[in-house]
Design a binder for these strands. Sequence first.
DNA 1: TCAATCCTGACAGGAGGCTGAACGGCGGCG
DNA 2: CGCCGCCGTTCAGCCTCCTGTCAGGATTGA
Lengths: 232, 232
Amino acid sequence: MPVQLIATGTSGLRVLLVEDNIILGEAVRDHVAAADHAVDWMKTLEDARVSLRTVTYGLILLDLRLPDGSGIALLRELRAAGTATPVIILTAHDQISDRIEGLNSGADDYLVKPFDLGELSARMLAVIRRYGGNISPVIHVGEVKISPVDRRVFAAGEEIGLSGREWAVLDTLLARPGAIISKAQIEEALYAFGSEIESNTVEVYVSRLRKKLGRDHVVTVRGVGYRIGAPA
Amino acid sequence: MPVQLIATGTSGLRVLLVEDNIILGEAVRDHVAAADHAVDWMKTLEDARVSLRTVTYGLILLDLRLPDGSGIALLRELRAAGTATPVIILTAHDQISDRIEGLNSGADDYLVKPFDLGELSARMLAVIRRYGGNISPVIHVGEVKISPVDRRVFAAGEEIGLSGREWAVLDTLLARPGAIISKAQIEEALYAFGSEIESNTVEVYVSRLRKKLGRDHVVTVRGVGYRIGAPA
DNA sequence: TCAATCCTGACAGGAGGCTGAACGGCGGCG
DNA sequence: CGCCGCCGTTCAGCCTCCTGTCAGGATTGA
C-alpha cells in the first residue's frame, strides 16, 4: 500500500471554493483539483459557514457576490475569529470598491473575473508561499488521506475519528514515513518522558489504528518497531 | 571528471539541485547553502542538462518527477557518459518502483519525501564520505540493493523482508564488503559473547539469506568463512 | 575414492505481537 | 447529582513467525 505525501508546495491543500456561478465554479474546481488539491465547492455563504465549522482549509477562494449575501461578511467573520487561512477573493471587473474592501477585510490577494486559470495557479502559489510552512499538507497512505494539521483522517470517502492517543501514534509514524519507528520512540511520543508505562499500550493502539485505517497501513517490523506504508 | 571534492571536508561542495517544487526546493537550497555548499537550483531537466554541460558538480540532488520528464533519464545519461558524481534521488513515498529504478540506474542513495532536513544532511555526508573511501548508505550487491539505515533490502524489483538474525548476518558481512568473514566472527555478532551455540546456525542463516537474495550473493570460502559479492 | 565441509528441508519450541474484554476515570448532559 | 458514553490502560489467551537443532544429502579438495 503506497504512501504518498502531497505535502510539499502547491499540492495537497484543502481548498474551499465559494462561488455561485456554475460554469466558473466547475472550471476552477477542476483546475484546482488537477493540481492535486482537495476542493470543497460551496455555492452559498451558508453552506460555506457550515463547512468551515468542521473543516480547516489551507486556502479559501471566495466570490464576493453570492446569493445570500456578500463574501466580505464571511471574510470578516473569519478574521474576527482569528482564522489565518489565506483567502483569495474573486471579483467582477467593475467592482473595484469590493476589491479594496476585500483586501482591507483581510483577503490575501484577489482575482478579477474573467481570469486565466494559469493566473489562478500563480496567485495560489504566491499566497501559499507567503504562508511558508503553515499550509496544511495532506498525506496519502494508500486509500487513506491524513491531514496532520487539522488532525483529520479520511478513508473510503468517510472521515474517520481518531482518539488522542490513536492520533499520537499515527503522527509519530508519519513523522518519517517509511522509516522504522521503534515502540520505544512511539511510547516516548505518547508519554512525554519517563512515565513508566509497562505494558503493551503501543501494540493496542497500533491494533486500533489498523482496525480503523485498514490492516496494511501499519507494517510490523518484528523485533524492531513499526513503519507506515507498504508491507515487504 | 568523476568526483570533485573541495578540500574542506564536507563543505564547499558545488551541489546541483533539480527539483520543480518551489517550497521544497527553497527549503533544500537554503539548508544546503547553510552548510556552506554552493547550490545551483534547476527546476527542469532541460535547465539541469544545460548546467551540467559547463559545470562539474560534487553532488546532485535529483527529483524524479519533473515537468519535462523523468529524472531517471538524466541519471542514465550521466552514468552512460561515465560521470561518477554522486546522485541522491528524491522520491515520493508511493513511488517505490521509481526508487528501485533510480538505484538501478546508478543513484547512490535516495530520500523519501517528506524528509527531515537533518536526514538530508546525514545522507549527503554519507554519500560524500563514501567517495572519500567509506561505505555507501545504499549498498549494491549485484542486483540487490541494501539500505542499512532503514534495514531494507530490495531485489528483483521487490522489497525483501529479513528476520532479525538474517539481517544481522547480512549486516556483518556488509561491514567489510568483499572481505572474508569467518563463521566465528558472524557467530560473535549474532550472540553477544559466550552464548553457547553449538550448531551450524550460521550455515543455516547463510542458506536462508541466499534463498532470499539469490544464490550468488554470499560466497563460501571453504574452510575460512563467507564473503559478500559476486563469485571470484 | 574418501573425508571433511557445507547445504538445506523439516520440525518443535518459544518469543513477540495481536486483540477482545474489562475496568476505572473523566467530562458532558439531563 | 446521577447517568452515560468515550477514552486510556491493563491483562490474558491466541496465533504468527522466528529460531536453533538435526539429519541426510551435496560438494569440495586431496
